[in-house]
Computed example of a mutant assay.
Amino acid sequence: MLKFIPRHEFETLANQHHRGQKLRKVSRWSQFVALSLGQLAGRASLRDIVSNLSAQTAKLYHLGSASVTSTTLARVNESQPYTLYEALFHKLLSRCQGLAPRHGFRFKNKLYSLDATTIDLCLSVFPWARFGSTKGAVKVHVGLDHDGFLPSFVTVTDGKTHDVTVGRTLDLPAESIVVMDRAYNDYSWFNALNDKGIFFVTRQKRNALYRVVERHHVLKDKGLTSDQTIVITGSNAGKCPVALRRIGYRDPETGKHYVFLTNNFRLAARTIADIYKARWQIELFFKCIKQNLKIKTFVGTSRNAVLTQIWIAMCAYLLLAWIKFNSRIDQSLQQMIRLLQLNLFERRELLPLLKGEPPGPPEASPQAELRFS
């Protein structure tokens, strides 16, 4: 798996993101190997990771790594910048984007879902992450690209940062479609997106004030209840002076009624409803990484150590995505991790392993073939 990360690229990034004197007892590569093992093998603590590596000392040489102690690893996690793994994440992301399958809609626009997940922390252990009077938290903000369901935009902030504050900073491409829940309702931002040629789909707030300018015909057999052109009124009128589209939809399965707002007048009303329904993929993404990678419990207590672990988890996710795109297998991330956990230090081809094919006969060593005459 580590062959997918060119070593010279990693070392270049490691030199760019180094602080203090030269490391003597451990390298950044050894740190990456150790913490990646923690992610893929589900190790719970630094001591657990180090014990696991110690049991594989003979194989670490072939990985370009070396055994480490928990004290040394903890010191590197605390002192060396997490930005190395943020930069590595973007390198891996650019590779994955070239292989990712397209989203399932007919339109050619890029489609993104925005959301954030809060990771609770114990305030007495992580005092820098104060979220309330009695608890701490960090928040992971993600812009999920529906081409391959890749986390194209990732930002980690303190728990108090509002979702829309991060949303405003994203550099989304023109003509793209971004879908989000009501936490991102900001009429000034909607107007800014419209000026940049970016389409948005969101749910309308219940207390929104608006005036209907035009009503459009809807196909009620598709669950649509309304399709209107509106303008915002009240105190928010000046924040978003452009006309918006208001679409009502009743889910035939649950009977729940939804009202969507968008600045896209080209797509069919049912397509807008389906776009919002596809936003559920980002919820599945958060569920996937929380259940299968180590981003809820941490092996360090400093801010740098926590961010290092989160960014390495994101790198591990992209490594698995890259393998999945290349091999074109149907296994979920959870199934892939379960297979890899039992074979992390076995020298086997990945594709037969992930397809469930039995291993071939072991290769005979040249020494075993020597015969005395």
Rank of each mutant, 00 (worst) to 15 (best):
K22H: 09
L293W: 04
K205I: 01
K239V: 00
N194A: 14
G98W: 13
F126E: 09
A137N: 02
W128T: 10
L267H: 12
E283A: 05
N304P: 12
S327C: 15
L73M: 08
L284C: 11
Q341F: 07
L37A: 12
K22R: 13
G223A: 05
N191K: 13
V138F: 11
T117D: 02
W189L: 11
Q39D: 07
I275S: 05
Y249L: 06
A66L: 13
K277G: 03
L319E: 03
T308C: 11
K196H: 07
R328T: 09
L284Y: 10
L350P: 04
L2I: 09
Q204R: 08
N292P: 04
Y61G: 15
L37V: 13
N264F: 01
G104R: 10
L261C: 01
N191F: 07
R215L: 00
D221A: 09
T118K: 12
S54Q: 11
T301H: 09
A243Q: 12
A273S: 05
A313P: 03
Q97H: 05
T83K: 15
R19D: 08
L293E: 11
M180V: 08
N292A: 10
S124W: 05
G104N: 13
A74V: 08
L307D: 05
E346Y: 00
R211V: 01
R371I: 09
N185Y: 11
P101G: 13
R215M: 00
H62A: 15
L46K: 11
Y276V: 02
L193E: 03
L224V: 07
G300M: 03
D227A: 11
K324D: 06
R168S: 11
L121W: 01
N343V: 08
L193C: 04
P366V: 05
A237G: 01
A44T: 10
R7N: 10
S365M: 08
A174S: 12
L60Y: 05
F149A: 13
I230A: 02
R270H: 09
E9D: 04
H90I: 08
N194L: 02
A183D: 04
I323A: 15
A116E: 02
L46F: 06
I282T: 05
Q56G: 01
I247L: 01
F105S: 07
P358G: 00
L114V: 03
F260L: 12
A58V: 13
V33L: 07
P361H: 09
V164W: 02
A316R: 12
H62K: 14
G223N: 06
S152H: 15
F89T: 05
G248C: 02
T225N: 12
E214W: 08
F153N: 10
G223V: 01
F10K: 10
S235F: 00
Q97I: 14
K256I: 13
I5H: 02
Y61S: 15
L209V: 10
L121R: 12
C288P: 01
P173W: 03
D171C: 07
A316F: 07
A278Q: 11
W311N: 04
A55K: 07
Q228I: 00
V33D: 06
F107E: 15
W322N: 14
L170E: 09
S302D: 04
S54A: 09
F131L: 15
D145N: 15
V179P: 01
D221E: 08
P361I: 04
K22V: 09
T57A: 12
S124C: 07
D227R: 05
F105T: 09
R102P: 03
